[in-house]
C-alpha cells in the first residue's frame, strides 16, 4: 500500500490499484530498480506518499506476471548488480487505461465534495 507519511491514521490508505499505477508512471522515465522506484515516488510526492517495501515487491511481481513491466539485471550507481524494471508496451497501454479511470474517479470524488 501507499500510505500518507503522516501516521496519524494508519488506516488512511489510498485507493486500491493506485500503487500499480504509480509504479508504471514512475517507470515512464526509464528503467529503475525497486529501491529507486520507492525513493522516486517519495520525492516526487514531497514525502507525502511512502511506499512500503511490504507492498512494493508483491506489486512488482504482479506487474511482471501481467507482462506490464520487464526485469533485467544491470549495474547500479554504486557499482552493484541490481534488478532494473522497464515499462513494456502493454504496460504503457495499461497505464493509460488506469489513469483514465483514476481521473474519472477523482473527478467524481471532487464533484461529491463540491456539492456536499
Amino acid at each position: 500500500m501507499v500510505r500518507p507519511a503522516s501516521r496519524h491514521d494508519a488506516r488512511n490508505e489510498m485507493l486500491p490499484g493506485t500503487l500499480d499505477m504509480l509504479i508504471l508512471k514512475t517507470l515512464c522515465l526509464g528503467r529503475m530498480h525497486g529501491y529507486g522506484i520507492a525513493q522516486r515516488i517519495q520525492q516526487v510526492s514531497h514525502e507525502v506518499l511512502q511506499v512500503e517495501e511490504g507492498s512494493l515487491y508483491p506489486a512488482l511481481q504482479r506487474l511482471l506476471l501481467n507482462g506490464w513491466v520487464k526485469a533485467e539485471w544491470g549495474t547500479s550507481e554504486n557499482n552493484r548488480r541490481a534488478r532494473y524494471y522497464k515499462l513494456t508496451a502493454a504496460g504503457r497501454k495499461q497505464l493509460g487505461a488506469q489513469m483514465a479511470s483514476f481521473n474519472q474517479t477523482i473527478a467524481a470524488i471532487f464533484r461529491v465534495l463540491e456539492t456536499a
Partner: peptide, 12 residues
C-alpha cells in the same frame, strides 16, 4: 532473484 533484489534494497 527476489532474494538478491530485496537484499540489494536493504543495502541501498
Amino acid at each position: 532473484q527476489l532474494d538478491a533484489e530485496m537484499q540489494q534494497h536493504v543495502e541501498l
